[in-house]
Nucleic acid binder design. Structure first.
Lengths: 129, 129, 129, 129
DNA sequence: GTGGTCTAGACCACA
DNA sequence: GTGGTCTAGACCACG
């Protein structure tokens, strides 16, 4: 179990992010129940109020719904997963492109730099530690 | 003159970023003088304390130096520009790769998704503005 | 038969309502600053966290914006007032109509009953007290 | 300073309201028997204690009476229905007027706004879609 | 001084 | 048990 929170983003949003990632990766399917606020709080080593805030945020975004007295569930329908995936992907990519452009890097260069980075990564992938 | 700050990152760090970008893009060369704190404050529509903090941060990072009574200058030597460019580029790329991996996207897919995104963007690319 | 109980309104939403009323009535104009979280908390006899929640909610609704370190301000532009007025008015009226219908009162009757009520009120309006 | 928040309406009072509505609409006549506490509890999906409290409240208000071993009955006489209708109607109307006044809307405007609202509602009766 | 986040603990209505 | 709200008190980054 890792607790390891970045210091920049609020914890409750980091939790939202990780849950969204799990939905996009298919670890939590549409219609499935999330861990209860209290369970998640213990598991994450975080105050229940913080988890509550994450859940409320996800509900506000229309990704999750709460059934009173029963728990919090991912919205039914595969569409929600596609929507999430697309939204998060686009967010990441456009942020990347914007940042690179601000450094004066052309669009062709972005791709080659990315390819170089990925190739370097392959070499010292696992062998070391 | 118009200043459109994101709400997420601290303003003083956003200012550091934009100045670093200008250095990397060659708009400010090694040895050149930055605008004074007061000028920059007025120009950015931001509190002088905030600019002061940005300058202090850049000095702490070894990118600029303050000469008493003269102002704040980018460190001499082209090496500083290369160092900055490499540092910021690597930071951006590794952040991008990490985020995409968290979505369960393979490294091959990253490149193709990026290419698609750039192609779509070409339509409203440069002709504008 | 539907049971459908309205959840009694949380304090933080009641506070949102009263602030919206003040905006609609013109007591707080576009661009003006709201009382600080702490001031409002003391003034309302409520915990600062609750006020914070009200402010966050209003920002989420796009009625208010926060400038860091400066305070919370009503969005610029008279449009926001018109939008608020229309939204709240419609809410009140439709609630009224719904309640009257639940009593089996026809739409024509609603108007005449309202007129009677207002006429009665005129007689003992101000002279008293 | 005092800030009078509306006491959020308890469920048992909301149940009282719905029963009163049914009496006013003539669905339950004077002298008729109400559902038993247990029936009503199951039917409403509410704790029997809560229903018990609603019945006690209605008895206190002189609208129903309890006959030991027989059940709970609406008081005899058409007058009770008239009394209820008037009380609830006045409550709804004065609440409406109060809310509209809080928005700074004049009494003349209230009527015209209500009429507009009712007219709009007529259109999307059936034809529209 | 400003808003934003977090913890700890409590109570509530609902199932 | 479930989520939702609220209080009390604390710390933070920002201007």
């Amino acid at each position: 179990m890792a607790t390891n929170f970045e210091t920049s983003k609020p914890i409750y949003m980091q939790i939202v992010d990780t849950i969204f990632q799990r939905i996009v990766r298919g670890e939590i399917g549409p219609g499935e129940k999330l861990a209860s606020v209290r369970e998640m709080a213990i598991h994450s080593g975080v105050n229940p109020n913080t988890i509550q805030r994450s859940y409320a945020e996800m509900e506000r975004m229309g990704v999750v719904e709460t059934k009173r007295g029963q728990g919090t569930f991912v919205i039914e329908g595969e569409i929600i997963v596609e929507r999430l995936r697309h939204t998060m992907q686009t967010e990441i990519i456009s942020q990347f492109v914007k940042s690179m452009e601000e450094l004066g890097i052309s669009r062709q260069q972005m791709i080659s730099r990315l390819e170089s980075f990925l190739k370097e990564g392959e070499q010292n992938d696992d062998p070391l530690k």
